[in-house]
Nucleic acid binder design. Sequence first.
DNA 1: AAGGCGATTGCCT
DNA 2: GGCAATCGCCTTT
Length: 199
Amino acid sequence: MIPREFYARNTVLVARELIGAILIRSIDGRVIRSRIVETEAYREDDPASHSFRGPTDRCRVMFGPPGVAYVYRSYGIHHCLNVVTEPEGTGCAVLIRAVEPMEAFEYLWSRRFPQTRYDANRIREISNGPGKLTEALGITVGEFNGVDLDSPPLEITRSPDPDLQLVESDVRIGISRGRDARWRFYDSASEYVSRKPGR
DNA sequence: AAGGCGATTGCCT
DNA sequence: GGCAATCGCCTTT
């Protein structure tokens, strides 16, 4: 588990340092570990952030204690997972945009594509996007919004051998304001990154 | 009260 | 490449 003080720091630093950390989900009697390979930072004084106009019913947990999950519904359909950062009272979080599962590939495939036979050539599609990883791992607003990420059934731990040499930064995806900040971080060696620059 | 848009995805042409 | 799905929040009446 990662101490709360790790999250109670500058959100951009936390977003960078979460690349390579391990997300552990316990579900259906399984313990499934995944490497975090893509994140984005959202700060309170950031027009792209849900917290920019202050706490609402949706984004209130962003203003709460760090290390807690902020889960919101995107486009009325998907769920997206964040970790709250900076000291309590500030509205900041890191969006988890992609993970690379370490096990349970066929189980995760069946959660994402229940009607389609397992296809190893398309395995990255199980979790190469923020709405995809939450579907694969069964992470919803109702179950996880406001829940501390320090113990099962959903937990983040540091990687045993973090390699931050390969972490790159880029502008964030899907926003119209705050476009200049290069607050997206990803592991350039991972096939699970949702999008790499230059296209 | 009503309309538009979004930290997205998948299917269609 | 376009576009629908669908809901919370913002802006405008």
